[in-house]
Design a protein around this nucleic acid. Structure first.
Lengths: 197, 197
DNA sequence: GTCTATAATACGATAGAC
DNA sequence: GTCTATCGTATTATAGAC
């Protein structure tokens, strides 16, 4: 595959990925992808033979970025508390997009979990990567036995905050609730587990 | 409008409402509604002149049921703590549907908030009704100044739990996290606010 | 008010020239 | 590898007989 064709393919993937986030999967048409990517209509079928395959490529692209991000956090921050707090910073850092389109991971999963098991399994992988990484951090923090429980709980808290902030368009809510999660993590790190959350 | 035509109209609304929940709005076709309602094809256009109008009717239907439910809780349970705990019982009570299709209120809002402002405004009304009712209960519990904050937080917690339980298909998570929320409410009712959550 | 037939368009996908 | 023209189907929506 030539360098130019790789770039074309990547243009399609990134355009489709953006549209799937901004409009949802079912509400994104082939024509949308064609227009957004600038690639001639039939040409897309040279790279992907169906809409499902484009989705597959978009999820692979996202997974790569997520893994890259998590790995960079692991390298940059020496303590699990710092890493977990960096994770929480995703919320304020991407507040604009979250308010307008919701969580890129949560909204696509909620849409496809209804009745597209194959596509949903690919979308769910994003959750699993985050969960594994968060589990590692909670374990290193001293909660080995409950690390996965805490990880899943933290994901759910983030999803709830993103969802409600999105539905209400409420930036202050997003910021306020994120602070609460910081407090929780600090309590956990200091050994004061009584809050339980 | 005759009694029969009212029944026909209602059949359409209920079929569409169920489909919007089970498949999502954009993934529900007119043909789906025709098949599910048993009403002849063109006949639907006698009652609704567009898909958007069917959605409007479906949301009005849901809102009526929500208001009916909240009012019955207000009448049946004398204390705000009992009412709030009844609200939490929605999660285990509808666990089967939540695991398969997600929260009926959350998923439709997440889908339409992306880029359908008119339809989204109608879906958001459901959140507002719950929030107002929850706010009343927290106020009566003695947290007048923070009642709306607590109401929105409780909604977000429920949304996060529903979302993650849906994505993972994890019923035990749903049950476990709901218990945590019960503890929170009990702490609030007993005046031990230090947990903050 | 009810129903069938069908229009008009948008959809995902293909064929084939270059 | 690239691009245009177009296919067959599913979509929303209408016309008009009863």
């Amino acid at each position: 595959m030539s360098r130019k064709s790789e770039r074309t393919r990547q243009r399609i993937v990134e355009a489709a990925n953006r549209l799937f986030y901004h409009k949802g999967y079912h509400n994104t048409s082939f024509t949308d992808v064609v227009n957004a990517s600038g690639v001639p209509r039939g040409n897309i079928y040279y790279y992907f033979k169906s809409k499902g395959e484009i989705f597959h490529a978009a999820m692979a692209y996202r997974l790569g970025r997520i893994e890259q991000m998590l790995q960079s956090w692991t390298e940059r921050y020496p303590t699990p508390l710092e890493r977990l707090k960096r994770f929480l910073d995703l919320l304020p850092d991407s507040a604009d997009a979250l308010l307008q389109y919701g969580c890129p991971m949560g909204t696509i999963n909620a849409e496809l979990a209804k009745n597209d098991p194959t596509l949903h399994a690919e979308a769910r992988e994003m959750f699993l990567r985050f969960e594994d990484w968060l589990t590692d951090q909670f374990a290193e923090l001293g909660y080995a036995g409950r690390a996965r429980e805490f990880a899943r709980r933290l994901l759910a808290r983030g999803q709830g905050i993103s969802m409600v902030a999105h539905v209400y368009g409420d930036r202050r809510f997003l910021m306020r609730e994120t602070k609460l999660l910081h407090h929780w993590l600090e309590q956990l790190a200091s050994g004061e587990d009584q809050a339980e959350f």
